[in-house]
C-alpha cells in the first residue's frame, strides 16, 4: 500500500477520482498510469494528467537549483561593456534599481517580480511542498502555497528576459567590447531548471499528494 502511494500516481481505486477536461468538460475516470505516460481527453485531446517519473525528487533538486541560480544571478554582474576605455557593468538588481531611478517604477517592479521575485517564490514553494510530501508529511498552509504557485507560474518570464538579453547583445556588440558575466550564465541555467521544474510534476498529482498526506495525518 505505502509503496504504491510513493511510486504510483494517481491512487487507483479511489471512488472520488474523476477528472473533467479543462477545455471541454468531458468527465473521465482517473486510471493508474505507467511512469512517464500521460492521459488525454477522449473528446478533444487535451492533456488531462501525467505520471512523471521521480517527480518529487526532481522537483526538490530543481527547486534547490532554482534558488541557487537566482542567488548567483542577483549577486554577480550580468554583462560588462568596454567602450574605448569607458567601462560599464550591469547586474539584474542594478538594472531594476536603475529603471526605478530613471522614472519607470512600474516597469522596474514588473521586472523585479517576473524575473527575480517569482522564480524565488517558485523554487521556495516547490521545496516547501515537496520536501515534506516526499515523506508523506502534511504541513498547514500547503494548499495556500500550491494555489499561489499555480496562480503565479504563468508570470515567470526568465526565458523571455533571456531572449531580451540576446537581442540586446546584438545591439551592444556594435557599440563596445561586451563580456558575458556569471549572472548571464546563471540565467541560462535558471531558464533550464525552471522549465524542468514546471514540466516535471503534474498539478493534479501534487494536489492529490497534499490531500493524501493530510488525510494520513488526520487518521
Amino acid at each position: 500500500m505505502h509503496q504504491s502511494v510513493s511510486s504510483g500516481w494517481p491512487r487507483a481505486g479511489s471512488v472520488r477520482h474523476r477528472v473533467a477536461c479543462e477545455y471541454c468538460d468531458t468527465l473521465h475516470e482517473v486510471l493508474l498510469l505507467p511512469e512517464g505516460k500521460a492521459a488525454h481527453c477522449t473528446n478533444c485531446g487535451k492533456l488531462l494528467y501525467q505520471n512523471r517519473p521521480e517527480s518529487l525528487q526532481r522537483a526538490i533538486a530543481l527547486g534547490v537549483s532554482v534558488l541557487l541560480l537566482t542567488g548567483l544571478m542577483m549577486f554577480f554582474p550580468f554583462i560588462s561593456l568596454d567602450a574605448k576605455g569607458v567601462e560599464s557593468r550591469m547586474g539584474i538588481v542594478g538594472a531594476v534599481v536603475h529603471m526605478w531611478e530613471a522614472g519607470s517604477p512600474l516597469v522596474s517592479l514588473a521586472v523585479g517580480l517576473f524575473v527575480l521575485g517569482l522564480p524565488i517564490f517558485l523554487g521556495a514553494g516547490l521545496l516547501f511542498l515537496c520536501l515534506p510530501l516526499s515523506r508523506r508529511r502534511y504541513l498547514p498552509g500547503m494548499e495556500v502555497v500550491m494555489r499561489l504557485l499555480q496562480a503565479t507560474e504563468h508570470w515567470v518570464m526568465v526565458e523571455v528576459f533571456f531572449l531580451g538579453a540576446l537581442v540586446s547583445l546584438l545591439k551592444l556588440v556594435k557599440l563596445a567590447k561586451v563580456e558575458l558575466e556569471i549572472g548571464f550564465w546563471s540565467m541560462a541555467g535558471l531558464m533550464v531548471c525552471l522549465a524542468g521544474a514546471l514540466a516535471g510534476i503534474d498539478r493534479l498529482e501534487l494536489w492529490d499528494r497534499i490531500e493524501h498526506a493530510k488525510e494520513r495525518r488526520e487518521r
Binding site: F78, I79, S80, L81, A83, V86, S88, R89, M90, G94, A95, V96, H98, M99, A102, V107, S108, A110, V111, F114, V115, H154, W155, M157, V160, F161, L163, G164, A165, V167, S168, K171, L172, L175, A176
Partner: peptide, 21 residues
Amino acid sequence: GRWSMVDVFVVVILAGVIQLG
C-alpha cells in the same frame, strides 16, 4: 502571451548596461 514582453526587457537591459557617462 509572455513573449511580447521581450522589448520591455531589452530596454531595461540596455538602459542598465549603457551608462557610459
